[in-house]
Simulated assay, not measured.
Amino acid sequence: MTKVKSLPALLALSDSLRAARTDQGLGLRRFADALGVPAATLSSWETGKRQPEIDVVAHILGFLRVSPAEYQRIMWLWHQLDSPTFIENLIPGTASLRQKLDELAVRSWEWAPHTVPEPLQTPEYTRAILQRDATQPDDIDVEVFIRQAQQLGRKQPRRRTVLLGAAALAPAAASQLHAIGATADRLHVKIRIVPASTEGARTMEPFTIYETAGKTFTVALRHHDNVIFVSERDVVQRYRSRFRSLEREVIDDADLDRSESPRYRRA
């Protein structure tokens, strides 16, 4: 079996294969029998646990009679498996591959300079950033409810470290700061604040480093309506070094309640 270099591409491929089957109303066991493969094997292809060979993918798509455009898209995903860089186009209303990496990761490191990550947001904070972004009032209540519901069912990496830029707390600093301790304990996450005066804190864009089974590392970079996933070793090491440099500047836990301190204010 070909060594997989891009876990995000494999997850995108597996999701597409599962969607192609379910769109036809076929159950997993029934479809596995039709293909002549064990149900466990088909399941491993559809969950990203195993990489199917290209002729297997072509056979599945042909059997399901997917459209030519969908056939080309899924085959393109297969050819991305050996690429160290994968770009996901974010589509409103659909789950991002980052959520799947959250579920698979044994550990993650996140730098959030501008906005508190959604799983850590209080309703007051979510409401404040939606108002800041000029979201329609009628849509704010709906969006707050949706995000809170998503947080309840979202799985988190077993070990997670989040560095928050001081500016990220500005929209609702008091309520968000008071909630951080309890949230951290509940989600088993280590949260630290990086002062605005830290070198690079104002210019370094947000990123997340995921470690999955077998010490496989992937860096996720948000860029407008895309997320760029990179697994190239040199790039991963560069971002791990950047994270460590920020981590050396964090504020002690004892400072977390000082919500009125100038170091928390937006520059």
Rank of each mutant, 00 (worst) to 15 (best):
V194F: 05
T203N: 13
L64M: 09
R73K: 15
R159F: 10
L10Q: 01
E211P: 02
V56D: 04
D82T: 10
V144C: 09
L61K: 06
L164Q: 07
P52Q: 06
R248P: 01
R233W: 09
V142M: 11
Q72C: 04
G93Y: 09
N89L: 12
S245K: 13
L42H: 08
K5C: 05
E103R: 06
P262Q: 08
A173S: 11
L221Q: 02
G62R: 09
R65I: 07
F207G: 00
G200T: 10
T161M: 08
L97Q: 03
R158I: 13
F63G: 07
V57K: 01
L130P: 07
S259A: 11
F145R: 12
P8I: 00
R98K: 14
T22G: 09
A173D: 00
L17G: 10
R258K: 15
T212Y: 08
A69L: 13
R258A: 12
T2Q: 12
D141Y: 00
T126H: 03
L163A: 02
V4Y: 02
L97Y: 01
W109R: 11
P123W: 00
L7M: 12
T203A: 14
E103L: 03
S241A: 14
L90P: 04
E260Q: 13
W109K: 09
M204I: 13
R127M: 06
L97K: 01
A184P: 05
W45I: 06
A69S: 15
K3C: 05
E143R: 13
E249D: 15
F207D: 07
R30T: 15
Y210D: 02
Q131Y: 02
E103W: 00
S108Q: 07
T161I: 07
T212W: 06
R192M: 01
I209V: 14
L163W: 00
A112K: 03
G214F: 01
F217T: 04
V189F: 02
A182R: 15
S245G: 06
L17S: 05
G36K: 10
